[in-house]
């Protein structure tokens, strides 16, 4: 279980261009940080660097004494632009697989589906879902498989007003349970306690 995320003097270079440097963040359990900045300022790259998918040019990322390999293997959820769902599978198959893959129990699937009001959609193929429903299905796996640190890349963009509130409540519950959230946002993050602006 991660209880802290520390980014120290991070710099990322992509395709020969330095996106940012000297970025630091110290996030404790129960805190959420909104990552802001113009397009191309490196929000997605920073999230992927925390997830260990992108290498840092300089600086370091620590998880409060937890080994980075363990943290990335079992304590981080990444929700990127793509939802990671297979169009030809049913919603139930996808949610069940990603729940089990994320270390959650199969029994948690039903509860997560109820939380995100997906129960009636579970037997549909993913290709039949709207963009917002698909995003809710992707977010349901965060609820079903408990992991402490959520890295969210524009999580609210396809959601309607009601679900923006709905997901805010889910994020608040995650924070109350000692979770951490870093979210790249253009709109204000409803639960943010901190913010970090990346400038190009």
């Amino acid at each position: 279980m991660i209880s802290q995320l520390v980014i120290k003097d991070a710099a990322i270079r992509r395709g020969g261009r330095l996106l940012f440097e000297g970025v630091s963040l110290d996030l404790a359990a129960g805190e959420a940080c909104a990552l802001t900045g113009p397009n191309g300022s490196g929000k997605t790259s920073l999230l992927r660097a925390v997830a260990g998918l992108v290498r840092l040019e300089a600086g370091e990322i620590g998880f409060g004494g937890v080994d980075p390999g363990d943290a990335r293997g079992g304590a981080i959820h990444l929700q990127g632009h793509a939802d990671g769902l297979k169009a030809a599978h049913t919603a139930r198959e996808e949610l069940t697989f990603w729940t089990v893959w994320g270390g959650g129990a199969e029994a948690a699937v039903r509860e997560a589906a109820r939380d995100l009001e997906l129960t009636g959609l579970l037997d549909l193929e993913v290709r039949r879902l709207s963009a917002g429903q698909r995003r809710r299905l992707a977010l349901a796996r965060l609820v079903a498989a408990p992991r402490a640190l959520w890295l969210l890349d524009e999580p609210l963009s396809p959601l309607d007003a009601r679900w923006r509130d709905g997901f805010a409540a889910i994020m608040r519950r995650h924070l109350d349970g000692g979770g951490l959230i870093v979210a790249a946002m253009h709109d204000p993050l409803p639960v943010a306690t901190r913010s970090l602006e990346l400038t190009a």
Partner: peptide
């Protein structure tokens, strides 16, 4: 790779 599943497959104890 295209639908983002590879990211999620990489974030695992496996």
């Amino acid at each position: 790779y295209e639908d983002g599943a590879l990211d999620l497959l990489a974030l695992s104890p496996t």
